[in-house]
């Protein structure tokens, strides 16, 4: 490829990668699990060691149907702050913020702040999530309540409570240890 073609490919790659979390948010809200898992490479690695879209689809379906409150009704995944670091012609990693609002089938609901850590890969001319997304909770709180002072959520076991970011970050710990 010429230098111009390489630069165009770099821009096109970043554009495609930037859309992946948005497509994820939409497919999740629409409960279109086929569209959701199609965003992952066919041999996607799950966090529990399984591989493949069928295993991932089963994981999503179980969480949506048998989760708290009789399952998922409405989910708003408002994503932003996508930091993309290209690691090679076929790979990239990223961080994404998400302001989550969830209404359950029993009529209760909550909001959360979430940070995703992603890895992406290129297959042919398309980019995919390479692995199940690592999502870490900042907080979860019932609607119209404050997140302050809640016990650990131990997410995904519980949706409400204190999360793991920013608390576990070395930069966060160094900042507070330094004491000002």
């Amino acid at each position: 490829m010429t230098s111009i073609e390489l630069r165009l490919a770099g821009l096109a790659a970043r554009d495609q990668i930037a859309e992946l979390p948005h497509r994820y948010a939409t497919a999740y809200a629409e409960l279109d699990l086929d569209a959701l898992v199609a965003l992952y490479r066919p041999d996607v690695e799950l966090l529990n060691g399984d591989t493949g879209r069928a295993a991932l689809r089963a994981h999503f379906e179980q969480g949506i149907r048998t989760g708290p409150g009789g399952g998922l009704d409405t989910v708003v995944l408002h994503t932003g702050n996508h930091v993309i670091q290209v690691t090679g012609a076929d790979g990239a990693v990223g961080t994404v913020y998400c302001h989550v609002e969830v209404i359950l089938r029993d009529g209760t609901g909550y909001y959360q702040a979430v940070r995703y850590t992603d890895s992406y890969c290129r297959r042919g001319d398309r980019w995919y999530f390479a692995r199940q997304r690592t999502h870490e909770l900042c907080y979860g709180a019932p609607f119209a309540s404050r997140p302050n002072g809640r016990p650990d959520a131990d997410w995904p076991a519980r949706q409400i409570g204190r999360g793991t970011v920013p608390y576990r970050l070395p930069t966060w710990q160094e900042f507070w240890n330094a004491g000002g």
């Binding site: 702050n81 920013p166 970050l169 930069t171």
Partner: peptide
């Protein structure tokens, strides 16, 4: 935003 919230000055 990421550095700010991570206290990565």
């Amino acid at each position: 935003a990421l550095a700010l919230d991570s206290r990565d000055l």
